[in-house]
Amino acid sequence: MNKTVLTIDDSRTMREMLNMALVQAGYRVIQAVDGVEGLEVLRAQGADVVITDINMPRMDGFGVIEGVRADPAHRATPILVLTTESDATKKERARAAGATGWIVKPFNPTKLVDAIRRVAA
């Protein structure tokens, strides 16, 4: 069965890019537009991997990481954060909060899939 990736990003462009690359690579994709919706979707549908943006309205990526890690049912879900090269401090914060890995924007599809493979069986 195809693995399910939950993508959380407030940018429609970014969601579509992720969607295109992931579907192409054989993943099933579900989308959420911010952290609050992301956690709701994760709790309702589950996911094998979560990919989340950091800067989002309502709840940011750190909130997502903390929310997932505090949820006994989903705490073992790998989380990849979308960062940019200049966001070194954000990357550190995300790791400290429990991010499994990160994807540097702009990503290319190969790197994206590599990153997922490194965190999901």
Binding site: G35, G63, R69, A97
Partner: peptide
Amino acid sequence: KTDPKADARAERASAGG
């Protein structure tokens, strides 16, 4: 093991949501 603030923040965020 989890930052206790995280839960509070998550709650606030979902309440805000």
